[in-house]
């Protein structure tokens, strides 16, 4: 049988390069890698909550003093994020279309739940991030906490976070989101190595374990903050009242 299908359409060089399923997976993997790096850097910053009000608020001032650089970073992050999500959805649509008729019965032998639910865990994390930004960056969720100022006249990020997490609903939502992120990362990080072709028999045992391990470290780190607040380890500074 001769190869069938419609006549090939002329595509731009870039479109041709990124048109294939494998190239698109590279995009998801590489943007995923960058997002993981961001998540780690962000965590390091956040863990300063354990160092107290001064450290956190100073850190925030430092970030804001970066000026245009901060915007470059923000825009870069948004572009990466949009690419990651949109390409993943493109692939998801392709994969749905690849099986138009579903099985009546389908069992799973070895595929992990995390690997099978990436699109859902990813979507949930996406929604979480919007909420997170509305809460802490734009100050729209609990606006009464958004404009506090510390004794040195700096924006009191520390108190805003503590007050936020003292709200059990916020903490619950945050912790739940982190668990979903854990699921997304534990598959995503290992998967990335396979997609970019680094996973070979010698490194596979390492990269296959790296995902779950790194995901756990990251998520434990993030969850420690609301837990710390709820346990009273991270407390409101004197003078700030809930």
């Amino acid at each position: 049988m001769a190869p069938s299908g419609p006549a090939p359409q002329k595509k731009s060089a870039l479109g041709e390069f990124f048109g294939s399923s494998i190239a698109q997976k590279y995009i998801v993997a590489i943007t995923g890698l960058l997002l993981v790096l961001f998540v780690i850097v962000h965590l390091v910053g956040n863990l300063q909550m354990f160092a107290g009000q001064d450290a956190v608020n100073q850190y925030a001032v430092m970030l804001r003093s970066m000026g245009p650089l901060l915007w470059v970073a923000r825009i870069g992050l948004i572009v990466i994020f949009v690419l990651h999500v949109s390409t993943a959805f493109r692939l998801y649509r392709r994969n749905r279309a690849a099986r138009p008729t579903a099985y009546v019965t389908q069992s799973t032998v070895q595929a992990s739940i995390a690997s099978r639910t990436m699109i859902f865990s990813g979507s949930f994390v996406f929604l979480y991030i919007i909420g997170h930004l509305l809460h802490l960056t734009f100050g729209l969720v609990l606006p009464e906490h958004a404009h506090l100022v510390d004794s040195m006249g700096r924006h009191d990020v520390y108190s805003m976070v503590v007050l936020g997490f003292q709200n059990k609903l916020v903490s619950f939502f945050y912790i739940a989101a982190m668990l979903v992120l854990w699921s997304h990362l534990r598959h995503g990080i290992s998967s990335m190595f396979q997609t970019v072709g680094v996973r070979c028999p010698r490194v596979a045992p390492f990269t296959d374990q790296l995902g779950p391990l790194l995901a756990t470290v990251i998520v434990v780190g993030y969850i420690a903050i609301p837990l710390g607040v709820l346990a009273g380890i991270i407390a409101l500074p004197p003078g700030v009242t809930p």
């Binding site: 399923s21 279309a97 070895q110 595929a111 997609t195």
Partner: peptide, 20 residues
């Protein structure tokens, strides 16, 4: 790979069910 895409197969999400 190009022909594979043309045939309408899905993309791999590294679940490894195939191997099993």
């Amino acid at each position: 790979v190009e022909q594979m895409d043309k045939e309408g197969f899905g993309a791999c999400t590294n679940q490894y069910e195939c191997e099993a």
